[in-house]
Amino acid sequence: MFKRFTVDESVSGQSQIKSSLQRTIRAKILEQLPAIEPYFEDILPKKDKMVLAKVAGHINVVCSPAAEPLFFNVRDGPYCPTLRLLAKYPILLPRMCVDDGAIRHVMQGADVMVPGLKSPRAAIDDVPREAVVGVYGPGKDHPLAVGQALLASSAIRTVDKGVGIENWHFLSDGLWKCPTLS
């Protein structure tokens, strides 16, 4: 999603948003990522104006007042924390641990295939289909990518091939390389 992202070319506009829209976005994020509740004030204080960046491909990036990207979503889809935010608050997303061999591919933007989630060193949380998840290397503290599970965990455990997690945002992609969008 952000493989070719650059601030100059991909961001079509950044604006402070109306407080009513801001409330809607906060409510949606809170609904989708309930674990954020105790930290929401620290991440994005209510009194601060959030900045919304419009990115090519109908992507919205919710940023802090300092233009630090925090969450993104596609059209009206679920909000997903950026990797830099997830690294600070790993509790925000369920944890999907991939096989060592998959790491390099995921870091180049590949989707996570089901076999990469089934090796002895892989381990996955129980998630429903279409859940937003964090992807980790075995034994790693830091997330490697975030994405959407295309299959429920139960289905991943039963099938043998195909895409398990769609790769939305990964280490060293364009968005990762922009700690701020200014």
Binding site: P34, A35, E37, P38, Y39, D42, R84, A87, K88, Y89, P90, I91, L92, L93, P94, R95, D125, D141, H142
Partner: peptide, 27 residues
């Protein structure tokens, strides 16, 4: 760690098994 943290996330996330974890983590 994070698996159980995720389950109890609403309660504050500081209920890790051994040492209580406080967020944000320093990365």
């Amino acid at each position: 760690g994070p698996a159980s943290g995720g389950g109890t996330g609403k309660g504050g996330g500081a209920s890790g098994p051994a040492a209580p974890v406080t967020y944000p983590l320093v990365v």
